[in-house]
Design a protein around this nucleic acid. Structure first.
Lengths: 167, 167
DNA sequence: TTGTAGTTTCAATAATAAATGAAAGATTAT
DNA sequence: ATAATCTTTCATTTATTATTGAAACTACAA
């Protein structure tokens, strides 16, 4: 396979994966492009490589920066901004996990906690509801804290230890 | 809070969470409804509780069955079908993890493997590309196998062990 | 075999989400 | 100041995804 073909395939695949995970396609593609670029790229570079508009590029670059997985870079004597991706993949995973936890899991936990505090458990339905949501709360909370712990070890020795444990 | 309010809030929240994870809203809502229902529900029940059409209900029930997280139930002497959710939450998580791995992670791994096999690494770009995709392959592959191992232990002792280890 | 009670399919429509591009904002150089 | 270069915003358009509903299909009962 040609380099340009391989690169394109990688960007498309990463974009598709993004969509399935609730991240918009372009955002994932820009990230893919920056990951495999040895040099920082300008907005123009990104627009022309991915055939997207200025507005689209601008907005998605901002989102990626908000997520903390790409950074701005300035070149001496140049006004234009350049962008690079987080280079360390463990760190990338850590940031994504943290962000999704903050945006999705934590709010869900708050709702679960709220609805499981239902006082009135007269009916069979209400009692079952309370039990199930409590169980769900426990589970989600446990999973979230596991994820947090696994990803918080930057050196990632714990991951290796776990894998060894489970051989 | 009233039971019916709490129930509604839970269903809405679960639906919203689903969308963010690439699962359609109705599918997640049906699942939420069945999870908190002590009795099996018919398609009619689901349609009227969620105010959705027959076609929508039928299609999403099928998807949920394909995922293995809800089941059909037949009542003696009744022609109509009833549905119940997987009751065990660990088992639910295991099935979801397995399904997403099969549908998304495994295909991604195949592409990563393919593109990283690029022969020609003359240019700096190509060399960097090969290195990055290889690194990504290693990472995704490691994460996938961890997930598999964690969720495969039905009794889940390993999860508890890990949490203890990381205190 | 016809009717009844149910389920599935799928083309049409509606709802949602993403992308465009032109105008407005910044920032630096002259 | 004014121009030049670059970035951001956001109303509009376009693309994607979900939903509807009516017809086709299935299985059983009379």
């Amino acid at each position: 396979m040609e380099f340009s073909q391989a690169k394109n395939k990688f960007i498309q695949t990463w974009g598709a994966l993004g969509s399935q995970w609730g991240i918009n396609k372009t955002m994932a593609q820009i990230h893919a492009l920056l990951m495999v670029s040895p040099e920082a790229l300008s907005m123009e570079d990104i627009m022309s490589e991915l055939h997207i508009s200025r507005g689209n590029a601008s907005m998605n670059l901002r989102s990626l920066i908000d997520w903390g997985i790409i950074f701005k870079e300035y070149k001496a004597g140049e006004r234009r901004e350049y962008f690079v991706a987080e280079g360390n993949i463990d760190e990338l995973a850590r940031k994504i996990a943290k962000e999704r936890s903050k945006r999705e899991i934590k709010p869900t936990l708050r709702v679960l906690e709220e609805v499981t505090n239902l006082e009135n458990t007269d009916t069979k339905e209400a009692a079952h509801f309370k039990a199930k949501t409590a169980e769900l709360y426990e589970f989600v909370s446990r999973a979230d804290s596991m994820l947090e712990k696994i990803t918080d070890y930057k050196e990632n020795w714990i991951t290796k230890t776990i894998l060894k444990l489970m051989k």
